[in-house]
Design a protein around this nucleic acid. Structure first.
Length: 692
DNA sequence: TCTATGATGAAGACATGC
DNA sequence: GCATGTCTTCATCATAGA
C-alpha cells in the first residue's frame, strides 16, 4: 500500500503510532530530522502549536528521567514539544493506551491555551508585517489561531478598507504614497544596484524598454527579467491584487475580484502587454509574498483526505496560496522524504499481482467532474511529488512501474481522481519479458546476461561505435568472456537497452520495437517527415499505453456514448490511443502539443483510425485561457477527462545539466496543467458565470 | 540547416553487511 | 541504525558530416 505523506500531523501521528506499536525503543528521538520536525511542531502557529517555547524547552530538559509506569509515553509527547504538565494531565485523563486520543487532546489544549497577549509569536508576526496589534488581536480572535491564511486575508481586508477610506478623504495620498507602502518598501530596500548591461542600455524592443525602465526604478535586472517573464503567467493578478491591497488602492470590489476568474484571465491575457505599473506592482507584491513566507515559515497545515476541504471555487487564489507554500514545503521535504515510492511499484494494483487496493477516499476538492489524470517521472527530485500532489488537491500519487505491463520498465507517478475499482487490462496481454517481446534474440542471448526486462525507454539510443566496441571486446575473448568484459558489456546493455541480435553483437531497439513495447500501433511515429532521432525522442516522452489504459478502463462503463477529452502536452497521443484501444469512443478531443511533429502524428493516427469525433489542435497551453476554454466547454458541453504529462526534462535523473525540479524552464509547465484544470473545473461548475 | 553522434555525472532508491 | 556499494534515470550540449 502506498505510504502517506509525512506532513506535520501525519508525522506526529506516525511517531505516536510507532510508539504505540511497540517500536519506540528503537526509535531515535534525537536525530536531526526528528528535531527539525519537533521544532516545526513547537513553533507552528497552527493546531500543532505548543503553549510556548520556554515551557517546551524546560519540560524537555526535565523529560527523560521519569519513573512512573507511563513515563515513557509522557517523555515521547514531551519530546514532541508539549509541556510535561499538559501531557501528564492528558495521559491521566485519557489513559496511555490510545495515543491518537492523547495527541488530539494535546493539540486541542495547545490551541486553547496559546497566549493571547502581544507576546504571542503569531501576533508578533502579523504586527511585524505592519498591522496594528489591536487589529491583529481582533482578527486572530475572529479567525482562530490555526488558520493563518484566513487571518492574513482578513487583516488585508481591514487594512484595505481603512486605507481606502483614508484615500477617499485625502485623494492626494493615494497610490504609492501611503504609509503602508512606504514602510513596506523600506523593508525591501536590498535591491541590487542598477545594471548597466549593454542590452538594457540599448533597448531595442518593447520588452527592453520595460526592462530598462524597471532597472532605472531601482529593481535589479534579475528581478525585472523574472517579472517580465512571469507576467505572462497566471500569477500576476494575485500578486498585483495583494500589493494593491497592501497599499490601499483596492476597494472592497477589488478585493472580491481577487477571486474572480474573469479578472484573473484578463491579466493573464494582457500579461505580455503589462504596463510598467503592473510590473512594479508584481515585483513589490512578490517581495511582500516572499517576506510573508519568511514571517510564516511554519504556517502550513496538515492535510487530510478529508472532507474539510471547502468547495474549490476560488481557484486563482487557491493556486497562488499553493504556490506560496511551495517553498515552505520544499524546505520541509528536504528534511523528510514526504513521498515514498512503493516497492514493488504497483500503485493501487496491477493485473496478476496480489494486494490490490480498490478503495480510497479522495479529498472533496478533487472530485470530478471532470476526471483528471496527471503523469510524470516517479524518480523526480525530492519534494517534487509532494508539490504536485498538493497542487492537485492533495490527491495521493499512484506510482506504477510499467514493467508489470510490458517488457520495459517505466517508473511513473500518476495523480488522478479516477475510480480504482473494477479496473481491467487491455487484452491480449503484451509480452512481459524481453524474450517474449523479441524471440529472435533468445538464440544469441548469453547466459551471463540475466536481464528479463529492459530498463526505461529513453529518448536517446546507443551509438554504432559503442556496439562495435562491445563486439570487438567480446571477439577478443575465447569462449565465455572474462568477468571484467562481462561487467562492462552488461553495464552498457543496461544503460542503453541493448539486445542481442547476433554472435557477440548487440544493438539498440528500432523505433518500431519501442512503439511495440510502449503499446502503440506499429509505425505510429513513422513517416510524415520525422527522423529516427525524433521518433526516439517522441516515443521516449510518451505514455506506456497498457499502463494508462488500465487506469482509464474504469471509464468505459461511465462513457458508453463517448468521451470529451482535454489532452494537455498530448505528445504522440498516448491518452487518445489508450482510450481508443479500450473501446471508449472519442467524441471531442482538444489536444495541446507544442511540437508540430507530434501534432502531425496524432492527426495522422486520428485519420487512420477513422475517428468519428472531432480533434482540435492547439499548439501552446498558454493559448488555453478562460475565454477559449469557456467556448470549448460551451461547444462540447464540458470535458469528461483532463489528461496531461507535463515535461519531465527538469525532473529526470538523466538530465545532467538542468535538473531544476518544478522550477525548471520546461517542467514549470506543470503549473499550467493546474491552471487549466482549475479553470475547467471552475467553468464547468458554473463559478465563472456567477461572477459579473 | 538538419541529423546523428559522442561525451558529459549527479541524485536517489535500494540492497547488503556490520 | 549506519556506511557502503550498486543500479537506474521520459537528457543536454557541442560537434562533425551530409
Amino acid at each position: 500500500m502506498l505510504r502517506s505523506f509525512s506532513w506535520p500531523i501525519l508525522q506526529v501521528k506516525k511517531m505516536v503510532d510507532n510508539n504505540s506499536g511497540g517500536e519506540a525503543d528503537n526509535f531515535d528521538w534525537d536525530t536531526e530530522d526528528d528535531l527539525e520536525i519537533d521544532n516545526y511542531a513547537i513553533s507552528a502557529p497552527s493546531g500543532l502549536s505548543t503553549p510556548c517555547g520556554e515551557a517546551v524547552l524546560g519540560s524537555a530538559e526535565a523529560g527523560s528521567s521519569g519513573n512512573s509506569p507511563n513515563s515513557k509515553i509522557i517523555d515521547h509527547f514531551v519530546g514532541m514539544g508539549f509541556s510535561r504538565e499538559m501531557v501528564a494531565k492528558v495521559v491521566e485523563e485519557k489513559g496511555e493506551e490510545n495515543s491518537d486520543l492523547i495527541l488530539e487532546a494535546l493539540l486541542e489544549y495547545s490551541a486553547s491555551t496559546l497566549p493571547s497577549s502581544s507576546n504571542s509569536k503569531l501576533i508578533d508576526h502579523f504586527v511585524g508585517m505592519g498591522f496594528s496589534e489591536e487589529m491583529v488581536v481582533k482578527v486572530v480572535q475572529e479567525n482562530g489561531e490555526g488558520n493563518t491564511d484566513s487571518i492574513l486575508e482578513t487583516l488585508l481586508t481591514y487594512s484595505a478598507l481603512e486605507t481606502t477610506a483614508s484615500v477617499q478623504q485625502n485623494p492626494d495620498s493615494g497610490n504609492c504614497s501611503s504609509d503602508y507602502e512606504g514602510s513596506l518598501l523600506n523593508d525591501f530596500s536590498d535591491f541590487d544596484s542598477f545594471s548597466e548591461s549593454e542590452e538594457i542600455m540599448s533597448p531595442s524592443s518593447e520588452e527592453g524598454r520595460k526592462l530598462l525602465h524597471l532597472t532605472k526604478m531601482g529593481y535589479s535586472e534579475a528581478e525585472a527579467s523574472v517579472v517580465m517573464e512571469r507576467c505572462g503567467l497566471c500569477y500576476l493578478i494575485h500578486f498585483c491584487n495583494i500589493f494593491l491591497l497592501m497599499v490601499g488602492r483596492m476597494s472592497k470590489f477589488h478585493l472580491d475580484s481577487i477571486k474572480d476568474p474573469r479578472l484573473f484571465n484578463c491579466c493573464i491575457e494582457n500579461g505580455p502587454d503589462s504596463t510598467i505599473e503592473e510590473l512594479t506592482d508584481f515585483i513589490c507584491a512578490a517581495q511582500i509574498a516572499k517576506a510573508a513566507d519568511a514571517l510564516f515559515p511554519l504556517e502550513d497545515k496538515p492535510f487530510s483526505n478529508g472532507s474539510s476541504h471547502k468547495k474549490r471555487r476560488n481557484w486563482g487564489y487557491d493556486l497562488l496560496l499553493r504556490k506560496k507554500k511551495l517553498k515552505l514545503e520544499k524546505r520541509f521535504d528536504e528534511d523528510d522524504d514526504a513521498v515514498h515510492l512503493p516497492n514493488p511499484m504497483i500503485g493501487f494494483g496491477v493485473p496478476n499481482e496480489p494486494d490490490q487496493i480498490t478503495n480510497r477516499v479522495l479529498p472533496e476538492a478533487a472530485l470530478g467532474p471532470p476526471y483528471f489524470y496527471y503523469e510524470n517521472v516517479a524518480l523526480a527530485p525530492k519534494g517534487v511529488w509532494t508539490t504536485i500532489s498538493r497542487f492537485l488537491y492533495d490527491v495521493e500519487p499512484e506510482f506504477v512501474d510499467s514493467k508489470f505491463f510490458c517488457a520495459a520498465a517505466r517508473k511513473r507517478g500518476y495523480v488522478h481522481n479516477l475510480p480504482i475499482d473494477n479496473r481491467f487490462p487491455l487484452l491480449p496481454f503484451p509480452p512481459r519479458t524481453i524474450h517474449e517481446a523479441f524471440p529472435l534474440t533468445r538464440k544469441w542471448w548469453p547466459s551471463w546476461d540475466t536481464r528479463t526486462k529492459l530498463n526505461c525507454l529513453q529518448t536517446c539510443i546507443a551509438s554504432a561505435r559503442l556496439t562495435d566496441k562491445i563486439r570487438k571486446a567480446l571477439e577478443d575473448s575465447d569462449g565465455e568472456p572474462p568477468l571484467g568484459i562481462q561487467k562492462f558489456v552488461l553495464e552498457q546493455c543496461r544503460k542503453w537497452n541493448l539486445v542481442w541480435v547476433g554472435r557477440n553483437k548487440v544493438a539498440p531497439l528500432e523505433p518500431d520495437e519501442v512503439e511495440m513495447l510502449l503499446g502503440f500501433p506499429r509505425n505510429h511515429t513513422r513517416g510524415g517527415g520525422i527522423s529516427r532521432t525524433d521518433r526516439y525522442k517522441s516515443l521516449g516522452n510518451s505514455f506506456q499505453i497498457d499502463t494508462v489504459a488500465y487506469h482509464f478502463s474504469v471509464l468505459k462503463d461511465k462513457f458508453p456514448g463517448g468521451i470529451n477529452l482535454l489532452s494537455l502536452f498530448s505528445g504522440i497521443g498516448g491518452a487518445e490511443v489508450a482510450l481508443h484501444q479500450l473501446g471508449i469512443p472519442l467524441k471531442n478531443v482538444v489536444a495541446v502539443e507544442i511540437a508540430e511533429l507530434n501534432r502531425n502524428i496524432l492527426r495522422s493516427w486520428w485519420e487512420q483510425t477513422n475517428q468519428r469525433g472531432t480533434l482540435t489542435d492547439i499548439q501552446d497551453v498558454q493559448e488555453l485561457n478562460g475565454d477559449r476554454l469557456e467556448q470549448l466547454i460551451k461547444n462540447f458541453g464540458g470535458f469528461d477527462l483532463v489528461v496531461g504529462g507535463s515535461p519531465c526534462n527538469n525532473l529526470t535523473g538523466s538530465n545532467r545539466y538542468h535538473r531544476d525540479g518544478l522550477e525548471g524552464k520546461d517542467s514549470a509547465l506543470f503549473f499550467d496543467f493546474c491552471r487549466i484544470l482549475d479553470l475547467v473545473k471552475c467553468i464547468m461548475n458554473g463559478t465563472k458565470s456567477m461572477i459579473i
